[in-house]
Computed example of a mutant assay.
Amino acid sequence: MNIAITGGTGFIGEHLTKTLTTRGHHVYILTRNPKKAEENVTYVKWVTDDSAPESSLPDIDAWINLAGKSIFTRWTRKNKDAILTSRIQATREVKRLIEANEKNPAVLIQASAVGIYGTSIENTFTEDSVTSNEDFLSHVSHKWEEEARQIESLGIRTVYTRFGIVLGANGGSLLMMKLPYIFFGGGPIGSGKQWLSWIHVDDACDLIMNAISRQDISGPLNITSPNPIEMNELGRSIGSAMGRPHWLKAPAPLLQLALGEMSMMILKGQRVLPKKALLQDYNYNFPHINEALDNLIQS
C-alpha cells in the first residue's frame, strides 16, 4: 500500500515507518524538511510557502495524521496556542490534500490522546466512556478529533487513535522517566497513586497496522496496554530494571513549580483500558510493564 504519514519524523512516526516498510508498504512522509528518498520511503515537503505536496503524492491507500507540536514543553500561553493550532492546521491540510486527489484513501488514522477522558483516580475509561473537556489536554484532544470529523464526513473510515504514554528505548517519555534513576534519585512522584495508561511502542505500531487492515475498526481506539499501573509501581519497576533504588520522593508542589501547568501530566492520570483491542483479540507483545521495561532498558 501507499501510506502517507504526517508527523512521520517524530518518535512514533519513525517507529511506525520502520514497521510499515518492513512489511513491504511504501511510506510518504510529509515534512517541512524533506530528506533524500530511502528504500520504500519518500519525503514530501509540506506546509511551507513553496510546497505543493499534492503534485508529489500518488493515490494514497491510508493516511496517518500524527502531526502537531510536542506537548512536552512548558505550557505558556504561546506554547499552548501552538500545540492546538499546529494540530488543527495539519488536519485541515490533510483534508485539503485528500480532496485534491481523485481517489479517497480507504482509511484515516487520526492521532488523539487518552487525555480526552479527563483525569481520575477512581474511574476506569474505555472507548465507550463519556469524554471530558475539563483541562488543556482534553480540550486539545476534543478539538483535534472534531477537526478530523470533517475528513470522516467525506465517507472515509476514520480511526481516532487515543494514545496513552508510549514507551520506547530511544525517545518518548521513558527517557525522562529514567533520568532521576540514572543519578540514584528516583522515587515516588506526588501521591504515587495516580494512574498511568502506557503502551510499548511496538504494540502501538502493531495496533495502528491492525486498524489499517481491519475494515471493522472505526471510531475511537485506545492505544494502551491492558494493564495500566500506578506511578509508584512504575517507578519501582524502572528502578528494578535499571538496578537503582526507588526512594527519593518528588513532592507535588515542587513539580508544579518546576513544570507549571504541564505537571498535571504526571501528577494526575487516568486508568484507560483498550476495550476494542481486547475484543478483537489483539495479542500484545508487552502486556505488562516489567516485560516492556526489560525489553526497552536491558536490551
Rank of each mutant, 00 (worst) to 15 (best):
G68R: 12
N232M: 08
A113G: 14
A113R: 07
K193D: 11
I223K: 01
N290G: 01
T76W: 01
Q89C: 01
G235T: 13
F11S: 07
E152K: 14
I289N: 02
H200N: 04
E127A: 01
I212G: 05
E147K: 10
A292D: 07
K18T: 04
N65P: 08
E99R: 09
T48K: 15
L108I: 09
I5N: 09
F11H: 12
F125K: 02
S132W: 03
P245M: 05
V166T: 06
E122H: 06
T22I: 00
W195V: 00
L30I: 08
I229F: 01
L66T: 06
R96C: 09
L221H: 15
V94Q: 13
E233V: 03
E14F: 01
G186R: 04
W195F: 00
G171A: 12
N210P: 01
E147C: 15
L221G: 13
S120Y: 02
E230N: 11
F125D: 01
M1C: 12
T158A: 06
H200R: 05
M1I: 12
E146W: 12
R32A: 11
H200P: 00
L137D: 11
N79W: 04
C205A: 02
P58C: 01
T76V: 00
E147Y: 14
K80Y: 05
W144V: 04
E102M: 02
I223R: 03
G13H: 08
G168N: 08
E145S: 07
H246T: 03
A241V: 13
N133L: 05
T22W: 03
G172I: 00
Y28L: 05
W46F: 10
N227Q: 12
D49M: 13
D206S: 15
P251H: 11
H200I: 08
R214H: 05
V47K: 15
G10T: 09
T17V: 13
R74E: 10
W198S: 06
Q298N: 15
E54I: 14
Y284W: 14
I60R: 10
F72S: 15
Y284F: 14
G187A: 07
V27R: 09
R157K: 12
M1P: 12
L174H: 07
R74W: 00
R271F: 00
S173P: 09
P274K: 02
K143G: 00
A204H: 09
N2W: 11
W247T: 05
I64Y: 05
R149I: 10
V44F: 06
I297C: 03
I64H: 06
G68M: 05
K95T: 04
E127T: 00
C205Y: 04
D202H: 13
L30P: 07
I165P: 01
D61K: 06
Q270S: 15
L16G: 11
L196I: 14
L154C: 10
M265A: 06
